[in-house]
Design a protein around this nucleic acid. Sequence first.
DNA 1: TTGATCATGTAACGTGTTACATGATTAA
DNA 2: TTAATCATGTAACACGTTACATGATCAA
Lengths: 193, 193
Amino acid sequence: MLVLLDDSPGSGYDLVQRFRFGIGHFWNATHQQIYQELKKLHAERLVQYELHSQEERPDKKVYCVTAAGRRGLAAWFAEPVKPPQARDALLVKLYGGTRRNLPALIVELEQHLALHQKQLGDYRNLEALYFSQDDAGRREHRLPYLTLRRGIRYQEGIVAWLEETIALLRDDALPSAPVPSARAKAAARPRKR
Amino acid sequence: MLVLLDDSPGSGYDLVQRFRFGIGHFWNATHQQIYQELKKLHAERLVQYELHSQEERPDKKVYCVTAAGRRGLAAWFAEPVKPPQARDALLVKLYGGTRRNLPALIVELEQHLALHQKQLGDYRNLEALYFSQDDAGRREHRLPYLTLRRGIRYQEGIVAWLEETIALLRDDALPSAPVPSARAKAAARPRKR
DNA sequence: TTGATCATGTAACGTGTTACATGATTAA
DNA sequence: TTAATCATGTAACACGTTACATGATCAA
């Protein structure tokens, strides 16, 4: 939330929108959590707000990061972060799916496939939007775009895996070994460090 | 945990090992959480245990799923699950990294790259182990293998993205648009549903 | 004698989710 | 009149993490 508010000030409701549409693919929070966290950050003097009365709309509290908040942010950026650990219930089902209702499992995998295809399409539209900018805009939004790119790759990965997995289960086939050529190719051009 | 115990009975310590080495790439839990959860499941009569005294070793509680536990499991399998929502702090840093210490960020991305390459290597070794089995074994462990395959794809995706991102940041380059040929190819063979 | 492995737990805390709660405007 | 959007919150609970705690065996 500090990163978002440091980017530009906004109300709680505003942050909800940004979580939903901007950075939802790598961080999310409900409005309840956001309002409570804003209260906490305010108590810690890391953010402050101005009341904006509006005609025809409820009042807004527009939050921004304080000097202490910016120090906190800088400190956070200096600390290393840990990779997230996944908790994917669908994979738990698949793992434990032996001698269970396979057709039902396949249906659920298909539902997830549809969801991820939709997500992927949305992300690609956002990507097109990014590339419709001029060079100055592209440079400015370069880092947020790279996070979008991660989201796209992630969804592509899931979609490909789901398609492959569904096909395999439907045909009751045994998985085939990975193609060695692709792997050898990857090993043949090691990255400089 | 019910899925794991249904697969085969085991002690708390045993479950710790399975989380670490078996299914760690899509679900994890610390030993503290596992012991508390076992206590809870036992209070709900979903699992039961037998005490196994051992020479030269502390006593073991070997847990297994009760009939009620199996009913609970079946009910859980029948309910749809939600895709996990990611919370990736590294992406938050990248997103908010504009006008911050880029070289430091690149170093951190490289550290993560090394971690993920290591993970990927480990998973590929497990994969080789799977394919070293005969057909019967492959059939039996088919579903767990498919979850491993997901882990491999996931790590491959991260590694590729990290390499691309690090190279781009290091060269201070603008991202280039995705290759349309690859995407057209993907669209040209739509999946039957 | 130091650290790893086997084996089990409790307590405190912090984070996140669900349910409950209000109230105005606007488009279908 | 129904649902969506704008706009804000509280309370209770569930879940997860960190710290604390013990104690034996075995290999380096």
